[in-house]
């Protein structure tokens, strides 16, 4: 039987990864998923301890964790929807006006990589009509 500390280690790793994602990603939805991953790590701990002690209180606690996670999902997604309606973006740094007074704003200095614009698809002139000046190049 795989013993308790192995499961605890996996839970700790999931928790830490979720923490990093929550702290560093800027997309609101990815931040939300990271928080859920932290909850997964904690749930794994509870179930492992439940098995270790031979009773079911840990599993019951995990059920409550899932219930709270469901509430969190509902509220968070509603909130994201409202935020998205205001700024047309999911970038959390757009809301940095809410930071503490006295802190410098985060400014992105490095430009994003330029994506080459795709050539617009050619529009063929309808048959039987004399092509206009622009359409003449495709003929």
């Amino acid at each position: 039987m795989i013993s308790l500390p192995h499961y605890l280690a996996v839970g700790a790793i999931l928790f830490s990864l979720g923490l990093i994602g929550f702290l560093s990603r800027r997309n609101l939805i990815v931040m939300f998923l990271s928080a859920e991953m932290m909850l997964q790590g904690v749930a794994l701990n509870f179930v492992a301890f439940s098995r270790h002690h031979g009773n079911l209180h840990g599993q019951v606690f995990t059920l409550f964790v899932i219930a709270v996670a469901a509430c969190e999902a509902g509220i968070a997604l509603a909130l994201f929807l409202t935020l998205y309606r205001r700024k047309r973006s999911l970038d959390v740094s757009l809301w940095q006006d809410l930071r503490e007074p006295g802190l410098d704003p985060t400014v992105d200095t490095e430009p994003l990589p330029a994506v080459p614009r795709e050539e617009p698809l050619p529009r063929l002139p309808p048959a039987g009509v004399e092509p206009t000046k622009e359409e003449r190049q495709y003929v």
């Binding site: 923490l19 990093i20 702290l23 560093s24 990603r25 800027r26 997309n27 609101l28 973006s89 999911l90 970038d91 959390v92 740094s93 985060t106 992105d108 994003l112 990589p113 994506v115």
Partner: peptide, 14 residues
Amino acid sequence: PSNANLRSREPGLA
């Protein structure tokens, strides 16, 4: 490209 997906906040510290 968008700021939300292509940038991280303080990746080193996090």
